[in-house]
Amino acid sequence: MATSAIQNAADWLERGGLRPTRQRLALASLLIGDGEDRHVTAESLFDMAAVAEEKVSLATVYNTLRAFCDAGLMNEVVVDGSKSYFDTRMDDHPHFFWEDSAVLTDAPKEELELARIPKAPEGTEVSRVDVVIRLRRPR
């Protein structure tokens, strides 16, 4: 992996307060090393690691993605009860979910208008609002 990608990954991990283990550095480099935002599943990141000849187990990928989310470096976007995507873009923004290809992409933030959201139950606060717009091609 390029030195700049590893340095970007190390800096990113430091921002999250995470120790830069070999596995974390490898996965972080794949996720943000080139400065581009990504939407990945654990399985797609596992496949990316295999192509890059990084030796990590699928369980390690799941645990590492969870650690990245817990550290505030990524957001988990749940598309349905069984499918999670992990997003490196941290600002509030909506998503398109393309049902025919099971791909998650960013939707134009400037075109979304939310007039209001329900009040949070007593003793709680809204941490974030996820907007996922499901798309399919007409039949």
Rank of each mutant, 00 (worst) to 15 (best):
M1H: 11
T3V: 12
I6C: 09
I6M: 14
Q7G: 05
D11R: 14
L13M: 02
L13F: 02
G16H: 05
L18T: 00
R19Y: 14
R19I: 09
P20A: 10
R22Q: 13
R24Q: 01
A26L: 09
L27F: 02
S29W: 00
L30H: 00
G33A: 03
D34S: 10
G35Q: 04
G35F: 04
D37C: 07
H39P: 03
V40A: 04
T41W: 04
E43S: 14
E43L: 15
E43W: 14
A49I: 04
A50C: 01
E53P: 00
E53A: 09
E54F: 13
V56W: 06
V56I: 12
A59F: 07
A59L: 10
A59Q: 12
T60N: 14
V61C: 06
Y62K: 06
A67E: 12
F68V: 03
C69K: 12
G72W: 08
M74R: 03
M74V: 09
N75P: 04
E76F: 13
V77Y: 13
V78D: 07
V78Q: 15
V79W: 10
D80S: 11
D80L: 04
G81T: 09
S82D: 15
S84W: 05
Y85F: 15
Y85V: 08
D87P: 03
D87N: 08
H93Q: 03
H93V: 07
H93G: 05
H95R: 07
F96Y: 14
D100G: 05
A102K: 15
L104V: 07
T105C: 07
D106Y: 05
D106G: 08
P108G: 00
E110D: 12
E111K: 03
E111G: 05
L114V: 15
P118V: 11
K119C: 06
P121S: 04
E122S: 06
G123R: 02
T124M: 13
E125A: 15
S127L: 15
R128H: 15
V129Y: 07
I133L: 15
I133A: 09
L135S: 05
R137Q: 08
R137N: 05
R137L: 02
P138C: 06
R139M: 04
